[in-house]
Design a protein around this nucleic acid. Sequence first.
DNA 1: ATAGGGTTAG
Length: 604
Amino acid sequence: MCCAQQDMLRRFLVVRICENLDSKNVFILKKRCFSSFSNIKHLKRIHAKYIRNGSIEEDILAIGKLVADISISSPSNLNYARSIVAHLPYRPNVFMWNSLIRGYAQSAMPEEAIPLYCEMIKQGLLPNNYTFPFVLKACAQLSPTYVGLVFHGTIIKRGFEDCDPFIQTSLVYFYASCGFIDSARQLFDRCSVRDTTSWNALIKGYVKVGRYIDAIRVFRIMQDRRDVEVDEITLLGVVLACSQLGALDMGRWVHTYIDKNHVNLNRNLGTALIDMYARCGCIDIALDLFRRQSEKDVRTWSVMIGGLAAHGLAKEALNLFFEMQQFRLSPDSVILTHVLSACSHAGMVTVGLKILNEMSEVHNVEPKIEHYGCIVDLLGRAGHLEEALDIIRRTPLKPDVVLWGALLVACRAYKNVEMGETVAREMLKLDPHHCGAHVFLSNVYASTGRWDAVDQVRHSMKEQGIKKAPGSSLIELDGDVYEFIAGDERHPQSTQINLMLDEIARLMKLEGHVSATREVALDIDDEEKERALYRHSEKLAVAFGLINTRQGSPIRIVKNLRVCEDCHSVMKLISKAFNRLIVIRDRSRFHHFKDGLCSCRDYW
DNA sequence: ATAGGGTTAG
């Protein structure tokens, strides 16, 4: 039995223990576990029979079916299928080529599909309408986009573009996969027939390129139409968009829709829903769903452990991590990142180091750069800067900007200027355009009065056109998502928001709040710095939330960067002064502000 | 005989 089958068998046993299944279900599961094992054996037996009784010479249809079955049975059998095709006493037909291309398109080596297509053409065969969906599926995964573009040309030339809905959908998804979502949209609009799959391809395309609001917009249009049915894959795309946007109301709506319409809550959709609730800050609902979800796989555990980690619930994350191992499920690389980041958010230095050291032996996962990143972050946050530096120096992997960046953040927090300077220089060696490193250096020089050095850094930043990525915050209101960019004046209700910000500032002054201007890196005086902080995107969003939501209802915000020190303390004060729960998901974790306190206990 | 859409962190 190979590793994959052993793994399946193990999972089967786990499922049996967990679910307490009756004998009929056990039988079905058993069959599923062993199907690929017996399948290829069975197929090989058929092949042997064909060789013995001479069918290979005569029955081209039967051989075709055999090639097809072997090709899709498992990617590991593709070489076998190829060798059958290569040793035929006659030229293989289009069906056989299609089957091989299909097999590679769904394997880890989609690039192999292209030479097969070329070989088929060389042998004087013509591709048919079945060929292109397979080929495009392979192209959607390839990095040189032009391969797929060439095939689009071929499709037009051979007259398939306007008449085959399967090819049209494949094209839509191919363009979206390459990031050309607007071309995908144009193709979609031109389609003669649009069924559920075409709509799903477009929605998933928008999700893929990060245009989540558009994905939801398309879903709404789809839903208004009478001629097309929404299915679980449509909903999966929408839930993914909601997770990214933190659009809880929309996500809840989908959940209700699933329940009301008896949509099959399969493993993928269930996992996506758990992830959505966790990413919208509702960790309790996520946990409840997780416990009730009967079909779980490694990804289900992964999103749950990741959700707990992001909420700073390290103990719970670790418990789940151990629990899954009791079920004999092996944690993968992503789960270990989650666990290490949980340790980091909770300052659990010893536990984190132990897990890192045991990774390769106990879990059979070689530590990657992101795992070291978590450890550097863990040590750095806890103030062990030297040890963090030591980890970077001793890493068997080549340190990247992100790894150094984790240490730079710690140097800033603990005001270690010397080490910070070294780290920033290392970062600029790797990425001369890194904004954070430039800003850090400039601040270091400014704090020690080395104004000529400050000028030099500023000048080179300007010359290279380096700008800080603008902060952006999302907030959902009545099912619509609003985006606020730092300093932006062109938002809805600009006047009211400014008035609210003034009101907040007045309350903050009363509470004795002093703006944390040291984080502002601009070459301006303190008053201007205060104004810049004043217009941080999360403050704009929270003001918008305060104006437009019922008193006492929670305000949820998703931010693209980490929340700054000033915003953090202002949010605490707002939660008290306005008696609101404020939930902010930032780049690295959740902050639940309530009664003047934050769930991160100011350790983030 | 064969087809298009399907989850995981930063």
